[in-house]
Every structure is written in structure tokens, then in C-alpha cells.
Design a protein around this nucleic acid. Sequence first.
DNA 1: CAGTGGTCTAGACCACAGC
DNA 2: CTGTGGTCTAGACCACTGA
Lengths: 267, 267
Amino acid sequence: MPHQPRSAQPGQETPGPETDHTTPLQLSVDRTSPVPLYFQLAQQLEAAIERGRLAPGSLLGNEIELAGRLGLSRPTVRQAIQSLVDKGLLVRRRGVGTQVVHSQVKRPLELSSLYDDLEAAGQRPATRVLRNTVQPATAEVAAALGVPEGAEVRLIERLRYAHDEPMAYLRNHLPIGLFDCDTARLETTGLYRMMRSAGITLHSARQTVGARAATAEEAERLTEPSGAPLLTMERTTFDDTGRAVEFGSHIYRASRYSFEFQLLVRP
Amino acid sequence: MPHQPRSAQPGQETPGPETDHTTPLQLSVDRTSPVPLYFQLAQQLEAAIERGRLAPGSLLGNEIELAGRLGLSRPTVRQAIQSLVDKGLLVRRRGVGTQVVHSQVKRPLELSSLYDDLEAAGQRPATRVLRNTVQPATAEVAAALGVPEGAEVRLIERLRYAHDEPMAYLRNHLPIGLFDCDTARLETTGLYRMMRSAGITLHSARQTVGARAATAEEAERLTEPSGAPLLTMERTTFDDTGRAVEFGSHIYRASRYSFEFQLLVRP
DNA sequence: CAGTGGTCTAGACCACAGC
DNA sequence: CTGTGGTCTAGACCACTGA
């Protein structure tokens, strides 16, 4: 997600090799594969767009013809196209056709953990677990997690480092019994990765991002001067059944971090 | 979107009237209506969930039976259900059935303008346009908007007030000719509302949120003490064809604002 | 006008969950 | 085992776009 080291520059993407506008595009499906036909087609179209074989703005050819060419039914082809429309890669216009979206649309950023972000950025992340206990939920935590006030919840406090420098102070509350919350594993990986490997399917998160000046204690913990601007984030994460699986209340050194994310308009 | 006055409290939702778990739910479609059948069904299901007539976790009844009851085909019913699954209101489990998600999932926040947010929060927003000109695009702006460097783009600088107090300093770059950018209208409404009424369909936005200390000039403009923490936001907004329609670079008084938004995991 | 996507039908077989 | 959703087919008619 969303978190990005300040140092990371949004590099300009180099254009792919010259697009071949003559051949109509090589597409085929494997009916012996367990992969759904619509999914195979969607993957191939997405790859073609990605590689520039389908130029931005170019028409895809009508659905009937595409279905005939692949030996598929029209609904199946439509399902493939629809999945790419949902991803924002294609646009359908009645009476016109289906075209590749103009300009390179960057793919939406994933809901990843700060740990993964740092690792992907080559920042050599490290974690120090300051606390890993079970406590009764305060009113705020109970409301966020949807548990009764006073119910036991796990509290985890961590310092996240990159290149041996503190980057963020992370405070998480989790429902107990959801998955094994081993301190040793917490030190070597991210919370979301632990959840995913426990079979939890993350679905959405609601966040509030703000800023404020660091207190003396916070400043010391993050090796910032007192009063330095901090980024604050509160996040409640939900799984695919709508249950809250995590409530976090974090602070980041604003001098080192900013959040990057993609918002989608829900029509 | 995203922007929320600090003062706004996320009020606890009061539970609806007692759910009737006996009657299977009143559903019907009007075949004379121009509204698609799957959409009518989706609306009714959504309303039922909203009103608590369908309790969280309750099963919806299988698709075949539902189709039979409504006189619809299964694919049509599936299309309705799928749209609600996409919205995060329903969960499908093979071999189990379709159930309403646990816990009230808040609906994703919209990509609205700061103006709309303030207005919705009863903050009586006002805008002062400081600048509304056409300029050659800098490298950064050109990259964000996908236009050649040096091409003419519109530059708008605004101060946004709430209750007669400055809240944010907004700086926008827009492709020229996209829509009429009248200064008078800018003072009485939001940019996104102007775009929408010009027929532009907003699709997604990519944002970066950070924080830093205010410079002397910024502090004065926002009536904050020098060095006060500011929230910074850069945003590029895209329409449904993938074209960048706006690039903004804004600062907000951290003492007054935080951003709230919802992230969705794209499977 | 012809061509496109938007919607809808009435079937079919399969994979997986839970008993 | 039964019941569920997941996938797929081969048609159909309509609404809109652009020439």
C-alpha cells in the first residue's frame, strides 16, 4: 500500500517495443486447463495491453467476432472483457466498441503492509516488538473491531526500522484467536502477510490520515526533533466476510514517509 | 473523499428496527420499467440489507430458487448478486450459499471534492480564487497530466475556507479545453462538481499524502504558527477513459483536517 | 442505416462444502 | 450423498452510436 519511502522516485516508464498494428492479436484458450476460459482470455488481453501490443485507444473488435474467433460464447467473452473494464484497463461504449484505456493507467496499489513496502523498496526493514499482550478492549478499540467493550483483544506495539533507522511506531489491536501471533514471526515479517498465510482474505480497509507535531516521547522514539511533524494513520482492516480483523494506530516520520494510494470511484 | 473535518465524529450507527426473520423477504421486479431487471433486484437487496431486513450473516437463499420466485433466469439473478458482492455487501461461498457480510460495512467514500465534504459536514465552505491562468506545463505537471512538456495547461490557485477560516491552499493544473473553468463558478462550487456537470466521468485518482512543517509564507496564508504541521496531498485524477483530467498539489492545516478514505483490495 | 454493446433466457455440467 | 455457487453455451431482442 500506500506507504512509500520518500526516496522512491516515480520513475518514468519506458515505452515498450514498437506496437504491431497489423496482426489482429494472437489469442487462444486451452480447454483442458482448469483455469476458467474467461480468465485465460482476460489474462491474455491484460498481458497484451501491458506489453503495448494493444495500443491505448485501440479498438478490441466486437464481442461476437472475438467469440467466434476463439470458439467461445459471447457471454464468456463478455465476462473476460468485463473483468478488465472493472480493472480500468478497457472502456466499453455502446455503438462504438471496446477500447483500451488512454494513457498508461497504473495498476491500483495493493493493501500491503509497511514491511512489504519497505522490502520491495530495498529498504531492508526490521521490526522490534515492544509489546505483545492481551488486554481488555477500550471503547474506541471495541467499536473499531466490533467486539464488546472490555472483551479481550491482542495489543501489539512495534517499532519499524529501515536501514537501522526507526521509521514508524505501530500500535495494533486484533481480535484474539484469529491467528497465531508469535512475537518471533512478528519480528521477521509483516502483520498482513501473517494474516494471509493464516487463510484470512483481506478485503478492504478504512483509514484516517492526519498530521501533528511529535510529543517529546514520540520524538525520542523516532529520533526526530521534538515538535517535528508526524504522519498519523488509523486503520481498520476487514476481511471478505466484513469482519474487522485489525485496528491500527500508527505514527510515521513525515520526513521519511508519505502514503501513496489509489482511490476508485464506485459508480 | 477522503477529507474530513477534525471535528466530525464517526457517530455510532443506531441499529434499525427489529428484523423480521420469518418472512423470506418481499422482492419483485417491474418488467415494464426501463431499469434493468438485475439492477432492480440489486437495489431491492441493497435496501433490504441497509434497513436490516437481511441480517448480517444471514443466507440469501439459493440462486435457482430466487430466480424462480422472481420469474427471472439464473444469470440475471447472478448479475444482481455479483454487483452486491463487488460492493462488499454479500459474500458467496460455494457449497454454502450467499450471505450478507458480517458487521455493517460502511459504504466506500466517494471521490468528492473538499468543497462537497465541507458542505456535507455543514462547514459552510467558501473559496477565494487567487489565480486562474494558462501556463506552459513544467516537467512534473506534464508528466502527471500526460501532455508534452511546455504545453499550455490551466493553473488554478485557491484558498478554501470553512466558517470564514482558511482551511486549505489548493493548487490545480488542468488540461485546457476540457471544460469551462469560470472563476465565478469556481468560487461557488467544487472542481469535481464542475467536471461532472461538464460530462466528465471521474474514475480513479492516485494520491500521495505526506506532512511537513509550514514555511513562513504558508503559515501566514493559513493563519497557522510558523513551523506548524501541514498535511500535503498530491493527486492526479483520471476519467473513465484513463485520461488525466486534473493534477493537484494541496496543503491543509493539520490542526483542522484529516483524510479519511477506504482502500479496496483488488483480487 | 448498420454495427456496437446492454440485457435476458433456459438450459447444461462441474467443483466444492457439509453431512 | 445433496446442495451450493462457478462456469459455459447458443441463441434472442433492445438501445445507442455514428455515418
